[in-house]
């Protein structure tokens, strides 16, 4: 009976949590598929009118394209700059690493409005395009995720040992990094990338304050349309979530490929039991193994 009670309460908590999480999404979905919902429990009608209107609006498509472009460019800069930097700091400057771990948390302490104001004061009269300033600002915002994400991945694969093993086998540092380290932190990198992608894609404050009027991203577009029509704004919100889910699924699909560390990291604990193999036979060491040795090998395999 006790077990049954515990099961019911466990499920109850899960159901409440699930409802809490999904209720706003369902409500937004219902609002996005109705024309009138004011004094009733459920909407009075059902329509795709707002979605049709949304996808026929060239401004929406442009906003999505701009958001994706901005996010991809910033991500590329972050990855190209940060991955080698974190690797070098972690591998060869352990004292700097301790300092960096604290430093990269600074963006948490600075509100985006303050950051944007500071950037505007600094670069408003300069020749540096605002777009580049925005990319730089987003770059700084990604530091806590990127630094810690890459660092944890490096720690998780015992990268120092792997580097040394590769170097002992004749690899240069660059070869060891590209052939051994990068493939093995692929999973961690992609998870971090996904995290940053969703953050950049939905970024509003920096983009709006720095170049808002001239470069309408999806969040700025949402903000503008929300003031015009709530149903349409809900449709934008649903489309935005679905887009993020699709992107997440694509990245998850890529990371769960059978080959490589993505599997090994999760399955390492399922190591097979030690198999006791008889000691090596000197006969085996001779170039031409006799049939006797071959048959012994067969027996060994069967055992």
């Amino acid at each position: 009976m006790k077990i049954k009670k515990r099961n019911i309460s466990t499920y109850l908590i899960l159901v409440i949590f699930g409802l809490y999480m999904i209720f706003p999404f369902i409500s937004t979905g219902l609002y996005a598929t109705s024309t009138n919902w004011s004094n009733t429990l459920l909407p009075n009608d059902f329509t795709f009118q707002w979605f049709i209107e949304l996808f026929q609006d060239s401004n929406f498509i442009s906003a999505v394209t701009r958001s994706i472009t901005l996010t991809l460019i910033t991500l590329a800069v972050v990855l190209v700059v940060m991955v080698p930097t974190v690797f070098i700091v972690y591998m060869y400057f352990p004292k700097v690493d301790n300092f960096m771990k604290g430093l990269v948390l600074m963006p948490y302490a600075i509100p985006a409005v303050i950051l944007a104001t500071g950037l505007l004061r600094m670069y408003s009269g300069s020749a540096i395009p605002k777009y580049a300033v925005l990319v730089g600002g987003l770059f700084v915002g990604s530091l806590p995720f990127m630094y810690q994400g890459v660092r944890n991945s490096l720690e998780g694969i015992h990268s120092r040992n792997l580097m040394q093993a590769a170097e002992m086998l004749g690899a240069s540092k660059l070869q060891a990094f590209l052939k051994v380290i990068v493939p093995n932190i692929k999973l961690g990198l992609l998870i971090t990338t996904l995290l940053i992608f969703s953050g950049f894609f939905g970024e509003f404050v920096l983009t709006n304050l720095l170049i808002g009027g001239r470069y309408e991203t999806i969040r700025i577009y949402m903000m503008r349309r929300m003031n015009e029509n709530g149903h349409l704004a809900s449709a934008v919100m649903v489309a935005y979530f679905l887009l993020l889910i699709v992107i997440s699924l694509v990245i998850t699909r890529i990371t769960s490929s059978k080959k490589g560390v993505s599997n090994s990291l999760f399955k390492r604990k399922k190591r097979k039991q030690e198999q006791v193999i008889p000691p090596l036979s000197l006969k085996q060491l001779e170039p031409a193994a006799t049939s006797e040795v071959k048959s012994n090998n067969e027996k060994r395999r069967k055992l």
């Binding site: 040992n161 040394q164 490589g260 090994s264």
Partner: peptide
Amino acid sequence: PRDRNVGMVFQNYALFPNMTIFENIAFG
């Protein structure tokens, strides 16, 4: 290290997780 022609076996094996046993051995 790579120019010394000296091999090393590590305590924790240091095998490359992204490579098969064949690829690991063939790496050098």
